[in-house]
């Protein structure tokens, strides 16, 4: 179908490792189709071209960690018709949200030779805590097939197929034998949002929860099952405190297992 004008795509980076926006460049077979269907207006990882807004679709990677970024995201929101956050940093605060559990000034004084140069916020927070977000794509990193699906859905004006149920459903559809039941390997799959296709259990590893909490996570029952398989309180605390540590369900569960200091 001939469109009057190609939609303008912008890719924005906040506090992140760049892995999620790189999965757009990693789309290989679909990349040319994407480049043909949209005008890449702003994507510094890929091109020096910088077209002015407004943008039809903004993909936002990373979390908000500095006062500048807290202001910048509002400009991006205002310049974007549709704003989609991609990855655990943008949707839950990322691994850098571990600092939220401590006083950030303590880290700054240990890590940096000149702490006075550092201007940072107390917490690393997801984009949706600052501006309205039209769609959140989960994962650390995101699944590139899901990114293509989100872009294709945007272009067609339909809802993306990115189910919010457990990772277990993906394992079972794939035919993976449950590592928790058949090997006694602790796994976060039952409380983790689908999207990776059940990657780790297919290789005999328990799920690490890269896609964050599923739609109805019973984290308390999950912790009980981990402890029944021999995990300590500290291990249970740590497993919920990774890439999606600041998501409300995982945060509450890790805090329930944190020892008083």
């Amino acid at each position: 179908m001939a469109r009057k004008r190609k939609p303008k795509l912008a890719v924005w980076k906040f506090a992140s490792c760049d892995g999620c926006q790189l999965s757009l460049l990693d789309c290989e077979d679909e990349l040319l189709a994407i480049a043909g269907a949209v005008e890449i207006a702003y994507f510094p990882e890929a091109t020096r071209t910088r077209l002015k807004g407004p943008y039809d679709l903004s993909l936002v990677e990373g979390s908000i960690t500095t006062p500048e970024d807290a202001a910048r995201i509002h400009h991006i929101r205002r310049a974007s018709k549709t704003l989609v956050t991609i990855g655990a940093c943008a949707t839950s605060g990322g691994i850098q949200a571990l600092r939220n559990f401590r006083d950030v000034k303590d880290f700054v004084s240990i890590v940096y030779a000149e702490p006075s140069y550092i201007d940072t916020l107390e917490q690393s927070t997801p984009i949706a805590e600052h501006v309205a977000v039209d769609f959140e794509l989960r994962g650390c990193p995101i699944n590139k097939a899901q990114l293509v699906e989100v872009i294709a859905a945007f272009l067609a004006g339909r809802r993306p197929n990115t189910p919010e149920h457990s990772t277990c459903i993906e394992c079972k559809r794939r035919g993976t034998v449950c590592v928790m039941v058949a090997a006694g390997t602790p796994c976060l799959g039952p409380v983790t949002h689908a999207g990776c296709g059940g990657l780790c259990p297919a290789y005999g590893r328990g799920c690490y929860g890269c896609f964050g909490p599923m739609e109805a996570p019973n984290t308390q029952a999950m912790s009980g099952a981990w402890k029944a398989l021999g995990a300590s309180e500290d291990e249970v605390m740590r497993v919920f405190r990774s890439y999606n540590a600041w998501s409300a369900p995982f945060r509450a569960e890790s805090e329930a297992h944190e020892k008083e200091e």
Partner: peptide, 13 residues
């Protein structure tokens, strides 16, 4: 419901 993970494994198997 307090014990159930709502993970769907029972229905899948």
């Amino acid at each position: 419901a307090g014990r159930c993970l709502s993970c769907a494994n029972c229905t899948m198997v």
